[in-house]
Design a protein around this nucleic acid. Sequence first.
DNA 1: CCAGACGTTGTT
DNA 2: GTCTGG
DNA 3: CCAGACGTTGTT
DNA 4: GTCTGG
Length: 223
Amino acid sequence: MCGRFAVTLPPEAMASLFGSDDRPNFAPNYNVAPTQKVPIVAIGKENTRRIIMARWGLLPNWMEKDPEAGPMFNARSETLEVKQSFKTAFAKRRCLIPADGFYEWKREGKARIPFFISRVDAAPLAFAGLWEMKKSTNEGAEVLISTTIITTNSSPEFANLHDRFPVILEKADWGIWLDGLTQAPRLKSLLHAPNNGVMRFHRVSDDVNKVANNNENLTKAIG
DNA sequence: CCAGACGTTGTT
DNA sequence: GTCTGG
DNA sequence: CCAGACGTTGTT
DNA sequence: GTCTGG
């Protein structure tokens, strides 16, 4: 799965990498938790790529508030087309979610040991995601843009760490994923665990557990 | 037709 | 908003 | 995802 | 145990 990640690419570099003409301002974040705002890449009204800020935790327009069990920060790739909360976004509102890498807690008995997973080539990665725009019910122009990260089964390479894994799209597939004309079967063909040798992981400090901690040491290897 | 749900993970 | 269940 | 809180009445 | 906040 993916319940915490890091995104520290500066706005200009992100806009350049993802081919967006404009971008908001945002600070590096080494400890992104659900409900926080993150930059995402989506197709705007003018059919161009845009970077916009979105709350992590999908909230469709018709849903009054987050489900009792918490914000929907992950969406299972296997059931995107049948789950009410995701099917429309899968058809019409796909996005990329830039990241340096993400955290995963391995369970060993009662202990939960945090690891950081990133690309072997150390390049920024892009999660496959969905987004929504919810208009506020009361007066005012308040709009909540929200997003979720798609998950899939882990590959054997990472099965020991965790049995679910976020979908990471290679650069060559970014345009296919974002393109509103791409058909569902082609889209689904992209939703798989990374190929062997693309990703790596290492143990990190328990400091990452606490959301208030936010510095470059969180992603660094220990032990 | 209307009413009611709409989620993931991990653990059992 | 849209699908499922009755 | 993990950490941390979890309450009311009356008075200021 | 369960909910809220980040």
